[in-house]
Design a protein around this nucleic acid. Structure first.
Length: 448
RNA sequence: GGUCCGGUGGCAGAGUGGUGAUGCAGCGGACUGCAAAUCCGCGAAUGUGGGUUCGAUUCCCGCCCGGACCUCCA
């Protein structure tokens, strides 16, 4: 019996995953706030969830994968104001880029990609429910969630309300009854985007849109909710509070999967440090699969240092996998995911372990085992790797100039003019390609 | 200050109460005009001090070091 175990942030333990409805597993991932390019941290988050979805689809007949787009946000408003544009025009580019960048990493598209701007009705309905059952109040044009009204508040992130107040470093707005209360709805001035509501023209707070979109598309109870671990508090704590209080008796997401943050060349990536690494820039320098593999080289719950050296190693690992496939041209993927890859993945998404399994298969394939090559392809499918042919991986576009030099080199080797041969190899190398000699004067070119 | 996580070979990075995966790099050999790739082989690690145990890298405690969250951030 193949059983998936996942570390559940809610219980802080590894648990056997049991779907609420085995005929339809429902998962929600906090998607991007679209005011800028996606960065490499966004990519890690999507990659780990992508492998999870691929794995679930091998275990269950149907998986509904929802990943939202947050297109209402004060940063978006700020950009719109700067440029004198409506928010739709500010978010349009980032949404398109996000799709392009994630596609370059071979990320599966979500089944449903809801947007906050399309869910004002659900947002307002949840707020009304919260007011009606005493978990929210109107003050000074705002609607606030009343933290003291929810006895479970803080349990998820492991905090007590006292701690929250003690640790609060922000000024507490005077209209708040309790320092920990957070905004569900806030008024918009005429120069800001706003929507009509029972509380006047305004806009939703940060956390409410995820409660609304997951409810609409997955129901009040669903299986898995994912995100970066920096969202545990306050975002996910607040989502849980809103949703559970709005829908008494419901439990919101059963299993919470959070990935650790990543470092860039040893430093935390943050706005204040100004070292945000955009996916777009990384993809200019390295193939999408290399970036993807790089992000899988560490377990999702440990810190990953995204470095140039690591990216170079990821590329070499893929070279090895593709060489193994190259030895068995046209071999189709095996039906079953090989155990040496499946088992580590079932154990809380141990992607480094799965990669080790793939190296074992590559060894066997290189030694001539066609079944191992077929298994390697199947492993690639669940990992989202090995999406192209070996020829495409190695060759890419070989410039005519490089081909010409290589042809000259064959001639030089034929007449045993090795000095000229070596000179030509260096010339090819200077253009960014490596030449490998095969038997009988044959050769292969690849990007170096 | 509060809460939480981690310290494994040169680097990256898993697992495990009983002689420590995997990759990259390095070294020796085969192959090659020389290389590259491939194959064969090699060296190399569990922060520190205690405790539990027949036995701990794995469990517990102290210490040292590093990191995260508590504030917008995946």
């Amino acid at each position: 019996m193949t059983q998936l175990t996942l570390y559940n942030t809610r219980t802080r333990t590894k648990e056997v995953f049991t779907p609420l409805d085995p005929t339809n597993v429902r998962a929600y991932l906090c998607g991007p706030t679209v005011y800028d390019r996606a960065h490499i941290g966004n990519a890690r988050n999507v990659m780990i969830f992508d492998v999870l979805i691929r794995l679930l689809r091998r275990l269950y007949p149907r998986v509904t994968y929802v990943r939202n787009i947050t297109d209402i946000d004060d940063k978006i408003n700020a950009r719109a104001k700067e440029r004198g544009l409506p928010i739709e025009q500010v978010t349009e580019g980032p949404i398109r880029w996000y799709h392009e960048d994630m596609a370059a990493l071979y990320a599966l598209p979500p089944d449903i990609e809801p947007r906050a701007t399309e869910h004002l009705g659900e947002i307002i309905e949840i707020i009304q429910r919260l007011i009606a059952n005493g978990h929210a109040y109107v003050a000074d044009g705002h609607v606030l969630f009343s933290v003291p009204s929810d006895p479970d508040y803080g349990k998820f992130s492991g905090r007590t309300p006292d701690e929250l107040i003690a640790g609060a470093r922000v000024d507490v707005a005077p209209y708040k009854r309790d320092a920990g209360d957070f905004v569900l709805w806030k008024p918009s001035t005429p120069d800001l985007p706003g929507w009509d509501s029972p509380w006047g023209r305004g806009r939703p707070g940060w956390h409410i849109e995820c409660s609304a979109m997951s409810w609409k598309h997955l129901g009040a109870d669903f299986d898995i909710h994912g995100g970066g671990d920096d969202l545990i508090f306050p975002h996910h704590e607040n989502e849980i509070a809103q949703s559970c209080c709005a829908f008494p008796g419901s439990h919101f997401a059963r299993t919470w999967v959070h990935n650790r943050m990543l470092l860039v060349n040893g430093e935390k990536m943050s706005k204040s440090l100004g070292n945000f690494l955009f996916l777009h820039d990384v993809l200019d320098k390295a193939p999408g699969e290399a970036v993807r593999l790089m992000l899988m080289r560490a377990h999702y719950r440990s810190t990953l240092d995204f470095s140039d050296a690591g990216l170079a190693e990821a590329r070499k690992e893929l070279d090895r996998f593709y060489r193994a496939l190259e030895r068995h041209p046209g071999v189709a993927a095996a039906q079953q995911t090989p155990d040496c890859v499946l088992e580590p993945l079932l154990d809380d998404l141990n992607t480094p372990g799965a990669l080790a399994g793939m190296h074992g298969l590559a060894d066997a394939a290189l030694a001539g085992d066609a079944n191992a090559a077929a298994a390697l392809r199947a492993a690639g499918q669940v990992m989202g790797l090995l999406n192209v042919t070996p020829e495409e991986w190695f060759a890419g576009e070989i410039p005519a100039e490089v081909n010409a030099l290589a042809a000259q080199r064959v001639a030089a080797r034929k007449r045993k003019d090795f000095a000229e041969s070596d000179r030509l190899r260096e010339a090819i190398s200077a253009l960014g390609y490596a030449v490998e000699d095969g038997p009988g004067g044959t050769y292969k070119l690849r990007k170096s």
